[in-house]
Simulated scan of single mutants.
Amino acid sequence: MSLFGRIFLLNALVLVVAAALLVFGPATVSTPALLGEVLVLAAGLVVMLIANAVLIRVGLAPLGRLTRAMTTIDLLRPGPRLTARGHGEIAELITTFNSMIDRLEAERGYSAARALSAQEAERRRVAQELHDEVGQSLTAVLLGLKRVADQSPDPVREELLQVQETTRSTLDEIRRIARRLRPGVLEELGLVSALKALIAEISEPAGLTVRRSFDKNLPALDAETELVVYRVAQEGLTNTVRHAGAGEIELTVRGRQSSVELRIRDNGRGIGSSAEGAGIRGMRERALLVGAELTVGAAPGGGTEVRLVVEARG
């Protein structure tokens, strides 16, 4: 039965009952109406309106659930679909809504995959150019400065050595940037070695104490999943350094039969009720690409905890 038919039937039922009471009931109305008759009619009208409201509310209850789902759904946090309860057009509407969400999530995943793939390709290109072009140019500058410094008088040599040291520091920074853009250790030595190198690179300049723990014989992960785990760890550690004000970080990687769990905890100020930034949303998009489960929230005892669980697909 259509939604129109259900509402019409409910109203018709109430009106038929009211008419039957007037026809077959003992109540009569005088002209002019007496006070008692007016009170009886008013009470009957109230009862009829309440019954009508209750019946319509019950009939339209599934639409209320659908409205709440529409206002709270987040494509970055897929959850269970609505149960297609109700009759006729209402059940069909809920089913259509669920199908629309499925299509939107699939399209978002496809678009995010293309965007992140293009982003990784651009990172590799920039890292390669920094390493090959800028790095080699600065290395040539260092050699030239050394050659000139060796042939210069002492006052000039001191200044050239200072310039040489500044250039060497710049070259080291460029190499660090290139490693962040393109984690060569991940491709060559695997996930655990890449995470160890990442911890050392991020924590040492910031003066953080990092306690790390890695299970042996982790389930094998494919290259795309390993990159997701690495990028989530990189973003989590970077956020801790920039925003958490933490002094200690705990990073663990555990094997769970056919899955791998990454957990990052800090003792900083926590995220509180602040809105998620681009970094956390980027982590969620990466997690969705490989069907991983990502949670970001308060850690036991204070601070922030990032937890990522990925299925082994290697």
Rank of each mutant, 00 (worst) to 15 (best):
H131V: 10
E224W: 03
L82G: 07
A197D: 15
T252E: 04
D215V: 02
V210I: 09
G314N: 09
K146C: 04
R68Q: 13
L93I: 10
G297F: 04
P205M: 08
V126R: 07
A113V: 00
A220T: 15
F214H: 02
M283E: 05
A19C: 14
E224N: 06
E285D: 13
L63V: 13
V126K: 04
V54W: 10
A27V: 14
L76A: 03
A27G: 13
A275C: 04
E261K: 06
L160Q: 07
E224C: 03
E285T: 09
L82P: 06
M48K: 12
A69I: 01
L189D: 14
F24T: 10
L191Q: 02
A275F: 04
L195E: 00
N217K: 13
L142C: 08
L21S: 09
V23W: 13
E235S: 11
L41G: 12
G36T: 14
R212C: 01
T209D: 11
V141N: 01
R182M: 06
G272M: 06
L294R: 03
I7S: 05
V163T: 12
L10I: 15
T225I: 05
M283A: 13
G79T: 15
R179K: 12
A287Y: 03
A312R: 06
V210G: 05
R256T: 09
A84G: 06
E201S: 15
A298S: 14
R263I: 04
L60F: 08
R284I: 01
E165T: 14
A20R: 04
G144P: 03
R123P: 01
D132Q: 14
L55S: 11
N239Q: 09
A106M: 09
T240W: 00
A91D: 01
P155K: 09
E311V: 09
M48E: 11
R57S: 14
E92G: 12
L251Y: 01
T238V: 06
V47T: 13
V229Y: 01
E173F: 05
L15E: 13
I264T: 04
V29I: 15
L63M: 11
G190H: 09
G59T: 11
L34S: 15
G291W: 08
L262C: 09
R179E: 14
V17P: 03
